[in-house]
Design a binder for these strands. Structure first.
Lengths: 279, 279
DNA sequence: TAGCAACTTGAATCTACCG
DNA sequence: CCGGTAGATTCAAGTTGCT
C-alpha cells in the first residue's frame, strides 16, 4: 500500500521481511533504523525466534538490507542479547562478525542507556539498563549531519569562558599537550557541542496495545543525523510504526514492512488518518 | 615481594602476566579486576599490542586466570576496542567467543559510561564515551553480595561516584575512619534499590605522574559486590595500582602483577609507606 | 568551610605525509 | 601500496588555591 502526499510518501508492505524486501529497489534507501523482534521476546506475536537460530534467521535479511541501501547510507540495528542459562547469549556478536563477511562495515556501536529499565531482581545479575545500537555502513564515507543533533554545552563553559586566562591562549606554545588552549577563544559565543556515542532516554511505557519499546526520540535522532529531508527511511520490522511516524514528521519518505496483520492494518489506518499526511 | 599485615597482605610480582601467573596457586583467587593495556595504546610502556594480534596475546593469559580463580569467583575485564580504518575492531568480541571455548561463562556485560570522555571531532564519528566491563565466571553459581552496592532511590547514585573522588575520600577518612560507610548510614532511613548494569562516572584526569584511567570507585564497586573481607583480589595488569589500593582499603588480600619496572618499584614504595598498611 | 575561579589533563581518531 | 608518525580537532570533569 502506498500513501502519497506532495512532500513525502509511505509504502507499507504486509509480510515477512525476508521476502517483502525483494520488492524494494537496489540502492534506494538512505537509512535503515529497526528494532527486530528480540530472541525469545514477543513470542506471542512473532513466533519467537530462538537464540540459537537467531543468526541464521537474521543474516539473509541483512544481505537484502545491504542490497537496498545506498552506498552513502547507514543501517542502525537496535538489539540486545538475552540472558540464557545464566549467560549473555552470543548471537548478537556473532551477527556482527557474519555481517562483516557479507561486506558490511561495523562503523560504531552506540549505547542506549535506558533510564527506566525493566524492574526485577535475580540472584546473579542486576537489571539490564542498556541496549546496543549497532551502526553498519557500506563505505567509509557516508552521509552524516552532525550539526543536526548538537546539544547544549555543559556548565563548564560558563566558568571557563567568563575570563579567558593567559594560559588558555598560550597552552599550545608552553605545553606539548593537545593544544586546546590555542582555540579556546573560538569558543566565545558557542553554546552547542557535539554529542557522544551514549544516548540517554527512557522507554515509552505508555503504549497501549504494542509491546514495542522503541521510543520516538531514538529513530528521530538517527533520522536527523543520517538523512536529509526527502530521503528514504526503511524499517523492515515496523511494529507500532515509531520509525515511520518519526520519518514522516521529519519530511522523509518511508518504506515499512510488518508481518503481523493486525499491526499492519492499524498502521495503515493511523497513517491514512494522520493529520500529518494531509490527504 | 610480600607485604603482610595482621588483616591483609599484598603480593607484588614483577614481570609479564603470562609467566608470573604460573606462581599463583590454582583456585586461590576470589575476584580478578583488571584493565589490560588496550590494543594500540600505551605503546611506550607496554609495547603496544596490535589489534589483530590482541586475541592471540590475551587468550593464554585468560587461560591462566581461569586456573587461579576459585569456582565461585568472578573475572571483570575492562576493555574497549579502538576504531581502525573507520571501523570498530572486532578483537574484543572475538575474545568473548574464544574465552567461552576455554570454558568461561560470559555472564554479563556492564557498561561504564565515561562522563568526561576524550574530546575530538571527526567527520564520521562522535566521541567515545563508554567502555565494556565484561563479566566472566566458571560456574553459574558464584559469590555476589548485591546488598553491598545498593543505592538510595533517586538520582543520588550519580552523585555517589562524584563523591568518591580522592579528596572527598581522604577528607572523610581523616574524620570518621570509614567515609563511605558513614555516608551510607546517612541514607539508612531511605528506600534502597539495587543498581543496574550501567555505571556512570568520570575518569580521574588530575593525577600527576600516572595516567590512572581506572577510577578508584570502579574496582571498589566490584570488590564490594563480588568479595567478602579477607578474600583475595588479583590484578594481572596493575598499572598505577588502583585495584590494589581499593582492595586493601576494603580489607581484602591482593595479588598484583606489573611488568613495567618503574611502575612496580613505585607501587612497592607506596604500598610499604601507605598508612593503611600500618607497618 | 563553603564557594568561586583558574588550571590541567585525558585507553580518541581522523587526515596527511613520509619512507 | 603498506606502515608508521605527526598535526589538528575537541569536552567535561577533577584539582588547587584563594576569599
Amino acid at each position: 500500500m502506498t500513501i502519497a502526499t506532495p512532500n513525502h510518501n509511505a509504502v507499507l508492505l504486509l509480510g515477512d521481511a525476508r521476502f517483502e524486501l525483494a520488492k524494494v529497489a537496489s540502492e534506494s534507501v538512505d537509512l535503515i533504523v529497526t528494532s527486530p523482534p528480540y530472541a525469545n521476546q514477543r513470542a506471542n506475536t512473532y513466533g519467537g525466534v530462538k537464540p540459537a537460530d537467531y543468526a541464521a534467521w537474521f543474516l539473509p535479511i541483512a544481505g537484502e538490507l545491504q542490497r537496498v541501501l545506498k552506498p552513502t547510507g547507514t543501517f542502525i540495528l537496535n538489539v540486545k542479547e538475552p540472558a540464557v542459562n545464566g549467560e549473555r547469549h552470543t548471537h548478537v556478536i556473532e551477527i556482527i562478525l557474519e555481517m562483516r563477511k557479507q561486506g558490511w562495515l561495523w562503523t560504531e556501536e552506540f549505547v542506549w542507556h535506558k533510564k527506566n529499565c525493566y524492574p526485577g531482581k535475580w540472584p546473579n545479575r542486576f537489571r539490564d539498563a542498556w541496549e546496543r545500537l549497532l551502526q553498519f555502513n557500506k563505505q567509509r564515507k557516508f552521509k552524516m549531519n552532525q550539526q543536526a543533533v548538537m546539544v547544549p554545552v555543559g556548565d563548564w563553559y560558563d566558568n571557563r569562558m567568563r575570563n579567558l586566562s593567559e594560559t588558555d591562549r598560550t597552552r599550545d606554545e608552553s605545553k606539548v599537550g593537545s593544544g586546546f588552549g590555542k582555540k579556546v577563544e573560538n569558543w566565545l559565543g558557542r553554546d552547542m557541542v557535539y554529542p557522544t556515542n551514549v544516548l540517554h532516554g527512557a522507554t515509552e511505557c505508555g503504549n497501549r496495545n504494542h509491546s514495542a519499546v522503541f521510543p520516538y526520540w531514538l529513530p528521530e535522532w538517527f533520522i536527523d543525523l543520517f538523512t536529509d529531508p526527502g530521503d528514504t527511511v526503511l524499517d523492515p520490522f515496523m511494529g507500532s510504526g515509531t520509525t515511520a511516524f518519526a520519518a514522516l514528521d521529519k519530511g522523509r519518505n518511508v518504506i515499512g514492512i510488518e508481518m503481523h496483520e493486525p499491526y499492519y492494518n492499524e498502521l495503515k489506518q493511523r497513517l491514512t488518518q494522520d493529520a500529518r499526511l494531509a490527504i
